[in-house]
Structures are given as structure tokens and as C-alpha cells.
Design a protein around this nucleic acid. Structure first.
Length: 814
RNA sequence: GCGAGAGUGGCGGAACUGGUAGACGCGCUGGAUUUAGGAUCCAGUGAUGGAGACAUCAUGGGGGUUCGAGUCCCCCCUCUCGCACCA
């Protein structure tokens, strides 16, 4: 031994190893020369003024364990970190404390770096990414231009979600129950603005299809499937008497076509004005105006009673030539399908409510196969066709296809697929983000900024308040706003919007390996070597936002020939949420804990292990202070064991060959910890380490393999202490150059097994026999047990169930 | 309403393809050691009855399948998360 043992002092040990890792660049793989690359990614944080909280530490530690484990398996692990410091979070905070965000960032980032180092994460700080750095957002803007050039960025005037507190447009995903995600209690308004959109809908089917093969948490892929919301149905044309054109609707239930008793258009539907009869004009105009002004929150409230107005016009049902009245109502959405529906009140609950209120006919066209249709509501199930002309008597499921085919044959309908997914609104009428790199010219229209002029620098404005007089922040600042057209050199102005913060974070993982390259967003060779990301770990709150946008961009890049893969993350695992005091740990609940105090008291290794011990990583855990001492005691005991300090009365294990039972426990644990890490089952892996420690402490002797293996198994969880003990065992250099121990399968099974003996399914005793003892011998041993024999006395044994090496059950009768 | 997940001791949580429910840890109880300790070590700890060995009851509730159910099936209740008039 080269080093004297001292009592466990987390502070000393952790400072020592953090300094050594930094000095020796232990965590910086050779990106160009690595032979066995493994890219571990964790969702980079927004560097808030409050600093890292325990929830972040939970997320990062779970990812770090994977990185460290893979390193011990022999991979070159790249585990980078960065900061997502653009966006409304930062801007609103800056406004609140009246300080420019640019001034806040260095301090906040420095604090985050300090805390991340403190937690002993295996981060490679030589490849940090900072989204508001012009060296980074230059390429964010470049990406915007590439999408524009490939027809994937376009402008449209659209009803958008406007948060009066954020003073900007927010995405559908950021609207929660009609309220702003960031301002609970603030209703989102509907405004109509010219906005930039990315055509994510063009990739809807591919985004859906790939979910079948990517190795992601099922909770996440399910959320994405629901969000994409593919539905199969038919477009059907309803002729409009006296007009050339027809009213097109989308329906998933062509089998109910004979039951369509009225039509409903969205108030925004373009045909509304043309179809309205003179008598109804006033009422219709009033209804449309009201709908237009209405907040989404109200419009979307399902509990609200249905409203609507008759247009005074009729369409013709293409299957039976019946005239059916056309109404408008805000329960029909202009954004989905064709913005018009055929209403079948007998078989759709919404239509049923509407028809009941306005006295419209309700005609059942499908009868349930058995029983009666429910009274007072729509029957939405399948059944047998009725009131449907020649289709009567057929199963409704068959008619779904048949009626569509018949309509198709007559040229009045066709099978179609709809998606719920909407295009991604990119524009933000704010300050703190990358300016959208577009120029508006009266002569040439919209012209992208030439790529050699990137980045379009965000000017350092004193007044960046979103709603000061004179327009948007960037519009008010004329030296920025006023420019010349790159094509005609005439006067022009810059786009005064900045991009959505989700664009900044949609490609950061591509940048990490190439942060030293100023010529390209990513170095093709490095990218080929390191991407796609091997493992991404993050919260499911990003299941449909960040993770969908990232996948979309990746597909677009692949199609542009910029990269050669279309899914960014081979494996994604969602972690659970930390609960504290009965609520999820978050700033809104005011129950966040700062890791600093726990590290100060117990050390980072203890906090890391404690967080991982709380429960299954995918399900989160209940964070409370009371249990942390258990882990602290565990690490103390580990440390004492390696110092040769007696554990209780036995004087401590000496150096020597293992007893069989200790060897078995050791090999079982090597097997289990590896398997558990693979399954992200950290809590049970730690429990197994505790069991092994208890066994080793009680053992009379331990050999080198046992001592070294235990430290290596501990290393992913408590890296500082593992390094310290590794050194104490006489090794030079980092333990992370060591290899995960192999277990001997023969030593994972015991020679003797305890067999449960049941009588009629109730446990009456146990017998210990050699492994693979025959049924007869087990039975003999069981019958010899007094506690078993007593229950069998004077009974007839009907049957004996034998589960080898586990259990024997006697079935008896009196 | 739809989708996903979950209900197990005082607490956090274990339990492989159905096979000894409660691993591991916290807390608690008793003991050892100590000047003392909230340090360390040992033992015990699901509930009820019993001095006791033992018995009975126990995995949200109710049925069922099975030699055997926390695990499978049906019905119901509760909680968490996500989506929310998507035709």
C-alpha cells in the first residue's frame, strides 16, 4: 500500500479526485482517435439564478452512472454538458430584476459548472455548448436558412396562442389547459399574426413509423404517437345545390353517412360567407366575430354547452340525395381535417349534444349486435347497418371500407389520413433569442441573410421589454432593423422576431463533438464517429416538445445530405420525477432542494447514491432528508472495511482466500449490479452492494479479487470514494481505466437450496437439500419434518407438486 | 372523456417465466461499548391471538382461474402524469 488510511472524509476525498480528474483530463476522450465511442447525453439545463436543484442532480446522476459503467466496460465515453441560456425563462427573469440577461449568464453558468463538478459527473468540459454564444447561434441561424432553402420554413398568417404575460406567441405544446405553461392562471388569447413555421407535418408519417424501431422508453413513444395522432378516414364531398363546388368533410366514420342529418363548418371556414343566406347574415356574422375573439381556453372547454348558428343553406347527402342543413359552430376546428364535418348525432356524442339542443333529427344507422343502444347518448360502437339503403344488414366495420370505395368510384370521396400534429411555429416576438436570419425587401420579398454574413448578431439593447411603444424590441432598434437587401441592395428591414427556444436545443447534441470547428456546424468525420447519440436520458416533460423537434430536424438534415442518420438518439430513457412533501419537486411548488447543503453535510457520493436509492429511476422517488444517513453509513462502513478497521467483534477480515459463501455472494452481485444498471434499476443495484458489503464485513478473509471487484461495482455510483479505495489498494491512475469484473456463472448458484414445503398451498416448513435433489428425496425429507408431517397426519395425499429447487406442495383430502 | 403508469409494514421500496410476500434502507425497541453521544457494534421489528411452540389474517375493494395469485382474467375504487370538442 502506497497510502495511509484515514477516516472517511468526503470533502477531502471529493476535492482531491475532482482536481485530479481535471488535471489529468480523465473525462476527456480522444474524439478523433477513440476506438470504441459511446456518446452519453443528458438534457442540458437552463442556468437559472437559483442554481442546480436536486431534480437536475437526479437526472444527471442517472445518466452519469451509465456513462461511467460503459467506460468500465471499455468504451471511450463522451459525456458533454452545456447550457440552454436563451429563451423566455432567462428573459423574464432579467426583466424582473432589471438586469441584462447577457450580464447574468456568466455568473449563473459559473455557479452551475461549480455544482456539476461538485457532483462528480464524468463531464468533458472541453466541449461545452452555450446557446447564446454567437459561435453557437450562428449555426442555429444557418439551420433556419437551410430549412428555408429546402421549403421547410414558410410564413403564414395564423391564429396563434398569445400569452399576455409573456407578450409573445407560444406553441400549442406550451399551452396547458388553455393557460400559459409559464404563467399558470393566465389565459392564452388567440391572435392572428404572420409567423414563421417549420413543416414538421411533412414528416408526420416518418416520425410515427420510426417509433416502431427506436429503442426509447415506451412512455415516451406512446406520448409521441398520441401527439402525432394519425387517424384514417375519408374525405367526402357533399354537393351544394346551385353551385359548382361541393362541401368537403373529413370523417373517420363513413359507415354512418346515412345518419348525417346536418353539417357543421368551423366559423373560420372560407365558405361561410358565401353560403350564408341573407336572413341569417347578421346572426352568422355575430357568431363568427364572437368565436374569433374568444380565448382558446373558453372555446376548448368541453363542459361548455354547444353553441351554433344555422347558415340558411343546405348541402346534399351524396348517398341518398337528402338535403341537409349547414350550421356553424366553434366545436369544429378550422385547423383539423377540412374544417367541416358531417354531423351524425346518433353515433357521435358531440353531434348528439348539438342536435339535442337545436332540435335536429337523430337517425340511428347502426344497431348494436346485442342489446339496445344507450338512451340519452350517442352509440359510438360497431354493429349492424340499418336505415342505410342497400347497406342494411351488413356489419358496420365492413361498410367503413365499402362505403368509402363506393364513394371513390363515384368520384365524391376518397380514403385519407389525417394527423393531429401541427406545424412548428418558430417566431417569437421577443428579444432574448437568435434573430431570425431573414430580410424583408419591398422589391425581392423575403431574402435569407447570405451565409457568409452569419451570425446576425443580437444587438445589446438597453430596453428589451417586449411591449414598449414602437413595436417589438428588435424593430425598435433601427440600426438593427433597417438594412439593405442582399439581392437588390435597396432599403429593406430585418425580420424582427427571434426563434423559439426549442430550436436552440433541437440540435445541440450535434455541436458538442465539434465545438472546436468554426467553419461548420459539425465536423463530418467526428459526427460519423460519434453520432447518433448512444444514450440520451431526460425527463418525459420533453416527450412531445424537444424530442419531437429534434427528430424532425434530424430527418430534415438527413434528407438534405447533411448527416447520414435520421434518428438522433439510439436509446432514450425517461427518468421519473422527484416528489417532495407530496408534490413534484419544482419551482412552482416551491419545494426545490439545493444539492449544496447535502454535499456539504454528507458529500456528493452520498447524495448521488441516495438519490438513486429512492426508487426505480424511471418512476422517480420521494425525496426526504431522513433516509440519507443510511447511505452515509454505508459509505462509512465501506471505508472502514478497506482501512482494515474491525467490523464489530470479528476483528475484520484478513487477507486470504474467500469462503465459498462469500464467493457466491460476490459473483451473484457482480452479475446483478451489471444487469440492474442495464435496466436502470439503480435502487436494487445499490441494495445488492449493501448485501455484499454486509457479507464481506462478516467474512473471515477477503482476497484481492473481492476487494477490487467491490470497488469497481461501486464506482459508477460513488466515483470519488471508489477512486480513493482503488488508490488505497495500491493502484496508480484512475479506476475508470480498470475493467468491470467478470463473474463465474458456476459461482452464482448455491450447492444447497432451501425448499419451501406447502400443504394445500400453505407454507408448513422448509427443508435444505443439495441442488437438483430428486423429487422422491425431497419428499422424504419433507415428510420427515415434524411441522409438515403434522398437517399430513391421517390425510390422503392426492397429489404432490414439485418445483425443482424451489417448492413442494402436498395436495391432500381428509 | 381518452392514453400511460401506479396502489405492498410506521416510511421509501424488493419480489425472475404464477412458486417461502416484505430484499435493502429509514424509523422504532432492547442490548454492548463509551466520560458522553444524534458515533459504532449486536439482536429484534407486518397485524391479531397465545407464556410458548404455533395458529389465523394480510399486497386498494369484490369476484374468478389454479395444487398455488402481489403477479393471470373480469368488475369496481383511488392516486399520479400526459392529451383534451382532432370529427
Amino acid at each position: 500500500m502506497t497510502m495511509a488510511w484515514e477516516p472517511y472524509d468526503a470533502k477531502r476525498i471529493e476535492a482531491k479526485w475532482q482536481a485530479r480528474w481535471q488535471e489529468q483530463q480523465t473525462n476527456e476522450p480522444d474524439l478523433a482517435g477513440a476506438r470504441n465511442p459511446f456518446y452519453t447525453l443528458m438534457m442540458f439545463p437552463y442556468p437559472s439564478a437559483e442554481g442546480l436543484h436536486v431534480g437536475n442532480v437526479y437526472a444527471f446522476t442517472g445518466a452519469d452512472i451509465q456513462g461511467r459503467y460503459h467506460r468500465l466496460l471499455g468504451h471511450d465515453v463522451f459525456e458533454p454538458m452545456g447550457f440552454d441560456a436563451f429563451g423566455i425563462h432567462s428573459e423574464n427573469y432579467a426583466l424582473r430584476i432589471n438586469t441584462h440577461p447577457m450580464k447574468l449568464i456568466p455568473k449563473n453558468v459559473a455557479n452551475f459548472r461549480r455544482q456539476l463538478r461538485m457532483m462528480g459527473l464524468m463531464l468533458d468540459w472541453s466541449h461545452e455548448v452555450l446557446t447564446p454564444d454567437p459561435k453557437y447561434y450562428k449555426w442555429t441561424q444557418w439551420i433556419f436558412i437551410q430549412l428555408f432553402k429546402h421549403g421547410l420554413a414558410y410564413r403564414k398568417k395564423a391564429p396563434v396562442n398569445w400569452c399576455p404575460k409573456c407578450h409573445t406567441v407560444i406553441s400549442n405544446e406550451q399551452v396547458i389547459d388553455g393557460m400559459c405553461e409559464r404563467h399558470p392562471g393566465t389565459a392564452v388569447e388567440r391572435r392572428h399574426l404572420e409567423q414563421w413555421f417549420f413543416k414538421i407535418t411533412a414528416y408526420a408519417q416518418r416520425l410515427l413509423d420510426n417509433l416502431d424501431w427506436i429503442d426509447w422508453s415506451e412512455t415516451t413513444t406512446t406520448a409521441q404517437r398520441n401527439w402525432i395522432g394519425r387517424s384514417e378516414g375519408a374525405d367526402v364531398d357533399f354537393p351544394l345545390p346551385g353551385r359548382e363546388d361541393a362541401l368537403r368533410v373529413y370523417t373517420t366514420r363513413p359507415d354512418t353517412l346515412f345518419g348525417a342529418t346536418y353539417m357543421v363548418l368551423a366559423p373560420e371556414h372560407p365558405l361561410v360567407a358565401e353560403l350564408t343566406s341573407p336572413e341569417q347574415r347578421e346572426a352568422v356574422a355575430a357568431y363568427c366575430a364572437a368565436a374569433r375573439m374568444m380565448k382558446d381556453a373558453d372555446r376548448v372547454d368541453e363542459a361548455r354547452e354547444k353553441t351554433g348558428v344555422f347558415l340558411g343553406a343546405y348541402a346534399t347527402n351524396p348517398v341518398n340525395d337528402q338535403p341537409i342543413p349547414i350550421w356553424i359552430s366553434d366545436y369544429v376546428l378550422i385547423e383539423y381535417g377540412t374544417g367541416a364535418i358531417m354531423a351524425v348525432p346518433a353515433h357521435d356524442q358531440r353531434d348528439y349534444e348539438f342536435a339535442s339542443k337545436f332540435g335536429l333529427p337523430i337517425i340511428p344507422v347502426i344497431g348494436p349486435t346485442e342489446g339496445d343502444p344507450p338512451a340519452g347518448e350517442a352509440y359510438v360502437g360497431e354493429g349492424v347497418m340499418i336505415n342505410s339503403g342497400s347497406y342494411d344488414g351488413m356489419p358496420s366495420l365492413d361498410c367503413l371500407r365499402k362505403i368509402t370505395a363506393d364513394l371513390e368510384g363515384r368520384g365524391v370521396g376518397k380514403a385519407t389520413v389525417q394527423y393531429r400534429l401541427r406545424d412548428w411555429c418558430i417566431s417569437r416576438q421577443r428579444y432574448w433569442g437568435p434573430p431570425i436570419p431573414m430580410i424583408h425587401c419591398a422589391q425581392c420579398g423575403i431574402v435569407p441573410v447570405p451565409e457568409d454574413q452569419l451570425p446576425v448578431l443580437l444587438p445589446e439593447l438597453e430596453d428589451f421589454h417586449p411591449n414598449s411603444p414602437g413595436g417589438k424590441p428588435l424593430e425598435r432598434y433601427k440600426p438593427f432593423y433597417e438594412t439593405t437587401c442582399p439581392q437588390c441592395a435597396g432599403p429593406a428591414h430585418r425580420d424582427a422576431d427571434v426563434n423559439d427556444n426549442f430550436l436552440d436545443s433541437a440540435w445541440y447534441f450535434l455541436r458538442y463533438p465539434s465545438t472546436d470547428d468554426d467553419q461548420r456546424p459539425w465536423d463530418p468525420e467526428r459526427t460519423r464517429k460519434w453520432l447518433p447519440v448512444d444514450l440520451y436520458v431526460g425527463g418525459n416533460e420533453h416527450a412531445v416538445l424537444h424530442l419531437m423537434y429534434t427528430r424532425f430536424l434530424c430527418m430534415a438534415f438527413k434528407d438534405m445530405g447533411l448527416i447520414d442518420f435520421e434518428e438522433p438518439f439510439k436509446k432514450f430513457r425517461a427518468h421519473g420525477l422527484l416528489i417532495k412533501e407530496g408534490a413534484k419537486m419544482s419551482k412552482t411548488h416551491g419545494n426545490v432542494s439545493n444539492p449544496d447543503e447535502y454535499v456539504e453535510e454528507h458529500g456528493a457520493d452520498t447524495l448521488r447514491m441516495y438519490l438513486m436509492f429512492l426508487g426505480p429511476y424511471a418512476e422517480g422517488g420521494d425525496f426526504r432528508d431522513s433516509g440519507i444517513v443510511g447511505i452515509r453509513r454505508f459509505l462509512d462502513r465501506v471505508h472502514r472495511l478497506y482501512g482494515g478497521i474491525p467490523a464489530g467483534g470479528n476483528g475484520g477480515p484478513r487477507h486470504g482466500p474467500l469462503q465459498k459463501r462469500t464467493a457466491i455472494k460476490l459473483h451473484q452481485t457482480i452479475k446483478k449490479v451489471g444487469e440492474d444498471i442495464h435496466a436502470f434499476s439503480y435502487n436494487t443495484a445499490i441494495a445488492a452492494l449493501m448485501e455484499l458489503l454486509n457479507e464481506m464485513r462478516a467474512a473471515p478473509a477477503l482476497d484481492d479479487f473481492a476487494r477490487e471487484s467491490f470497488v469497481i461495482l461501486l464506482a459508477p455510483f460513488a466515483p470519488h470514494e471508489a477512486e480513493e479505495l482503488w488508490e488505497l489498494l495500491g493502484h496508480d491512475g484512475t479506476i475508470f481505466s480498470a475493467r468491470w469484473p467478470d463473474y463465474d456463472p458456476a459461482l452464482t448458484i448455491k450447492d444447497e437450496v432451501e425448499i419451501a414445503i406447502q400443504v394445500m398451498g400453505k407454507l408448513r416448513g422448509t427443508v435444505t437439500v443439495g441442488r437438483d435433489t430428486s423429487k422422491d428425496e425431497v419428499q422424504a425429507a419433507a415428510l420427515a419434518e415434524e411441522s409438515v408431517a403434522r398437517h399430513l397426519a391421517e390425510k390422503t395425499i392426492v397429489k404432490v407438486i414439485n418445483v425443482p429447487n424451489r417448492l413442494m406442495n402436498f395436495v391432500i383430502k381428509p
